[in-house]
Simulated assay, not measured.
Amino acid sequence: MTSTLSPPHADGPAARFAASHANELRERDEHRDRAARAVARMARDRPDKILLLSILGLEPAAETGAPGLESALAGYTRQVAELIGVPAEAVTCEVTDTATAYLGLTARTADLPQRDLMLVWDERLGWSVAIEPRGDDEPPVICRLGRQIAPPPATVAQFVADALRGSRHGQLSPVPARLDRAILAAQMTGSSA
C-alpha cells in the first residue's frame, strides 16, 4: 500500500513555523553583520579587525562595490568637521539601527556663553545644533537645518555659522519618512564631491 503525503497548507502550522524560522535566521544574520561592522570600526588596523572578529566568532560584514552608508557618513561627517574647524577627536559617527553623527563644537553662542554646543546629525532629522547635555538630560536643540537630510557640507557649515551668530531658522518640523540608506549614502557621496 502506497501512501502519499499531502503538501503542508500555506497557512498551516508547518508553514508558519518555516516562515518564523526563516525570519529568525535573517534577523540573526543582520544582527551579526551589524556587530561585525561595529567591531571593525573599533579596530586599529586589518590584523586587529580580524583578531577582534575571530574572538567574537564573527565573519567580516559583506562589502559591496558601492559605498555603504557607513563609509559615506564617515566621509561626509569628516568634510563637515573640516569646514567648521572641529578636530577629528571631537567627531564620531555610527550606523546601527539609526545612523547618527556628533561633532563637538569649539565655539559658543553669545546668549549661552557658559554652555558647550554640539552639531548632531540623524538619518531622519538631519542636522541640528544643540546644547551639550549635562548628565542624562535630553540635549536642547537650538536650531535645525531643514529641508534636506544630507545637504552639501558647505551648506552645513553656513548653517552652523548662522546658528552661532544667533540666527534660529530651521526650527523643528515634522519628522520625514526614513530614506532608503543606499539613496542616503549616494546623496552624501554626491554632496561631498
Rank of each mutant, 00 (worst) to 15 (best):
G170N: 06
V156Y: 01
E59G: 07
L25Q: 15
D162R: 00
E89T: 11
P8C: 06
G170S: 01
H169C: 06
V86S: 02
L58E: 05
M1T: 15
Q114P: 02
E138R: 08
L53D: 15
D45Y: 03
A62H: 10
I55Q: 11
S20L: 11
D162W: 09
R181V: 05
R147N: 13
R37W: 12
V91K: 03
V156H: 07
T100M: 08
G170R: 00
L145R: 00
A72Y: 02
A154I: 09
V80R: 13
R134Y: 13
E132D: 09
A182H: 13
L105F: 03
H9E: 11
W127C: 08
M1C: 15
V91H: 01
H169Q: 09
P87D: 04
P7S: 10
E59L: 06
V129A: 02
E138N: 12
V120S: 12
D137P: 00
W127N: 03
R78H: 15
E70C: 06
L58Y: 07
R37Y: 14
Q114I: 03
S128H: 14
V86D: 03
R108V: 12
C93F: 09
D137I: 01
P13N: 07
T98P: 03
L117Q: 00
P113E: 01
A163K: 00
A18K: 06
V91R: 05
P139D: 07
T4S: 14
Q158M: 12
M118C: 12
A177C: 04
A161N: 14
L83N: 03
L53V: 01
A101F: 06
G190W: 01
V80P: 09
A161M: 11
I149M: 09
M1L: 12
D11P: 01
A22Y: 04
M42T: 14
P140F: 01
E70V: 09
G170P: 00
A163P: 00
L105S: 05
R26K: 09
A150Q: 11
Q79R: 13
L179H: 08
P133C: 10
L25K: 04
D116H: 13
